[in-house]
Amino acid sequence: MNINHVDLAGYLTKSLDADEHRQAEEHLATCAECRAEAESLQEWTMALEAVPEAMLLDGPPDDADLLLQRTLRQIRQESSGANRRRSTLVGIAAAVVVAAAVAGGAAVGRFTSPSDAPPVAQPPTAAVSSGPTAAPGTRTATAVDATTGARITVALTPAPGWIRVKAAVAGIPQGERCLLQVVDKSGKVTLAGSWLVSEAGADDGTTLDGSALVPLDQVGSVRVVTEGGKQYTSVSL
């Protein structure tokens, strides 16, 4: 079709030499069909060029710690101010986030979402190199349990055939004996860590470093349950 008239691919990637470029322009000037095709695709090349590269990058902004502090301060003020008509926390199912798979240099990372993932959050992230935050391929997710108010944030870093599990768990009362479990897609449960909630842990949350013999792409969810079997919170991945 159009593509046979002129090397549009070369034209759009600006990879024609001067002669070829001139010929292409001459052809486009006379062939309405090719011109329409070129123009509609150029709309996209220009739109792509206008996107700041940072919009595809994961991680926090540079030099913006004050911004985070300011935001947290505002939240604290609002939250203590009215003690919230919002008396019960609205649950989040799972705010799934990101992952930047990166292989050094100019390589381009990608998020691979499992094809059967819930239609919830499909991160549009294609990150370009050297994100300062997470190790390559790390996936993070956060969830709040609407009933218990407990929150979990997890970061799963893949190793061949298994994962490292970092978790921050808040909102569980002192004295609870907790298990951090990874549930794979078939429903099989693997223990990634266990702890007793201390007074400080009840106030400020507990951070955990664990691991589980589950490949990252097989992880269905990560949850916190007590020894007695009460589930405090669970996050889908």
Binding site: A54, M55, L56, L57, D58, G59, P60, P61, D62, A64, L67, L68, T71, L72, I75, I92, A95, V97, V98, T125, T133, T140, T142, V144, R151, T153, A168, A170, G205
Partner: peptide, 13 residues
């Protein structure tokens, strides 16, 4: 924790 995690993942974008 939620806000921190959103900031850490998406703040730059």
């Amino acid at each position: 924790a939620l806000v921190r995690s959103l900031f850490a993942e998406h703040g730059r974008a």
